[in-house]
Design a protein around this nucleic acid. Structure first.
Lengths: 201, 201, 201, 201
DNA sequence: CATGAATGAGACTTCATTCAT
DNA sequence: TATGAATGAAGTCTCATTCAT
């Protein structure tokens, strides 16, 4: 294995392990010693790859961002105007949320840490605003395709859906898995059913 | 002040301060020294009143439970069958959620700690199940009064609303306050509007 | 032993040990782990008594100050005008310097740390200025009693004598002990012999 | 640039940077990473040029030695017997001391490290003894030219002047620059004025 | 009941040094 | 020669908890 590949592997393993432990024990509860050891390296190796503990969290934030952007662009790519087709796509999306409790827990850790670290908050806010407005656009399009007026700012609805998804992830850790995906869809369908119709123009 | 009153006061102040710091810094981020000092006592005083750090959290859990039960019983006490009156009561409830970000954050800390401590999880589960089923009952009643069939188990809907409320609280810490109460109501109204009607019996 | 005495003893032992290790290994080279262990306590005990590593150094600075003030007041108390008596007192003083290489090395560590820590420098400057002017006064009086005019500001001469004493201490650590006390007196006598006479008034 | 020149340049830059950082932060406070980075190289480059951290210090010691020898030989080269001419040369020498606080601080670091490292002490002792005796010779000659008997072993007087110069450098770091050169001369003049005359032979 | 000094474990981080490239 | 990732030891400091007073 070339040197660069080897380095990349080290970094990758540390990031993966960090994510696992942040999810399992929280940001504060995961120690660098544990991360490094579980990944099979020394603590020094960690600091060769990251400036600080917060720095890995930032890296995870970046990946989170990228992954969600990919997710969303896939959802937004559907061109059909048929309402059933749209709902089918959303169903697919919601059910992935269901399988991604880890991402959700990570999201919660990111949010909690942003509440406590000034330096981190700055980076976090960028990602958050971006994602909120992206998801808001999807929701806006959805309502429009179905000829309905959203009952609130699309971005706010987006935030609410993320909140719902995070809150459910929090519950899922401690209790039996529940059908968060289908719950989210139920909320969404209800929202739409209750929405005023656009004026035919 | 009698000796008993004095003791009770000590305990009370420690609990209050603990809550503040758990909310602000998280369970792991709040140290017993800080809690005791901020409350105006020594660390020893803390251990005269609580067996361990987790023990205060348990006390907070009990209060949380009591407070929410009170909350709910007030909501459930409305006897009117008029749908607008029911929604008015729910509105009142939802808007208190809005003003209670601290309770929500505490709830999140409780949930997080339950995910990590076996001993705590046991106690937590009791409270959680109780509250979930109570709130489920309210929701079930609500649908029934309005002649609708809930789109999922009432208890699951209850969990979803709590999830939503917690997720929104998490967001509220770091970003500008948003109208969580009204968002929750929008979801609820949508759910109802979309629900199948009960068969007239 | 009463509790207070016990605490005072702990503190005292930590301070003494810290001084020994600062002198032997330098401020940077003496670890808190070593200080605590050598004194027979845990690291935590150190932090129960001092806010930080720098804090012990400050305590040592305070003691240094007190010790030197005592020293000087003893030298200044001599009222005799007889030049031989005065020189005898100075001889006594200079020879104590000779036996106090530890204090001198500590003084050097204090000076070095003041060069590197902003917070420490502030405290150090106070002590330094005070001592410099006190010793300057002694030197001024000496010249006056002998009817001579000092060849430079007395405070500057004082600083020079301290510099000489510190520099000699630095040498003494690595090489065989040499008669610093007598050297200092040789310099002083020379300075006086070469000084212009005061105008007879 | 040829390869050899390039290597020499690397080495030179590392040595210069090491000196700067040793003076500024002390031997213990200067890290190899910082030295290498500030010089524009990697840590590996450092270890391609020096066997260890102590090794650079040894190299600095060698340069120190050479520089001081040059210095002294210049002072000793004056053949004049005229006392004013001799003092003029000494004045020139003393005033360079004044401008060379960096060399003095380095000298202090060398001395401190010699106190702590057995291996380094051996090398240091050689340099020190050599320099001490060289400067002693200058001082002996000076007294002789002026027809005076030194009040102590010339080598000891030499050590005392170095001590004075180092002690003053230590002070100069933290306080305002003071006229060390002129102070040193004042001491020297005093010493001479007070010295017994040689018997006319 | 309340105090707070002391403990022992463990947190994050830095460092001199090694070694495959 | 020069690189810099990786090591392992050691650094300062914090914490939940205990216990003599």
């Amino acid at each position: 294995m070339s040197r660069e590949e080897s380095q990349a592997q080290t970094r990758e393993r540390l990031i993966d392990t960090a994510q696992q432990l942040f999810v399992a024990n929280g940001y504060g509860g995961a120690s660098i010693r544990d991360i490094a050891n579980k990944a099979g390296y020394s603590q020094g190796a960690f600091y060769s790859n990251f400036a600080s503990k917060e720095d890995v969290l930032l890296e995870l934030l970046r990946r989170h961002m990228t992954a969600e952007a990919t997710h969303l662009s896939r959802v937004m790519s559907g061109d059909g105007d048929d309402s059933e087709q749209i709902f089918a796509e959303l169903d697919a999306w919601a059910s992935t949320l269901n399988h991604d409790a880890d991402w959700c827990m990570l999201s919660i850790e990111l949010q909690l840490h942003a509440n406590r670290s000034q330096t981190f908050a700055v980076e976090y806010q960028k990602v958050w605003d971006r994602h909120r407005s992206d998801l808001g656009q999807v929701i806006g399009q959805l309502f429009h395709k179905l000829g309905r007026i959203p009952p609130a700012e699309p971005a706010e609805l987006a935030a609410a859906f993320m909140a719902l998804s995070h809150g459910l992830a929090l519950q899922r850790m401690s209790t039996r898995p529940d059908p968060s995906g289908s719950l989210i869809m139920a909320f969404l369908r209800g929202l739409i059913a209750n929405a005023e119709r656009e004026k035919a123009g």
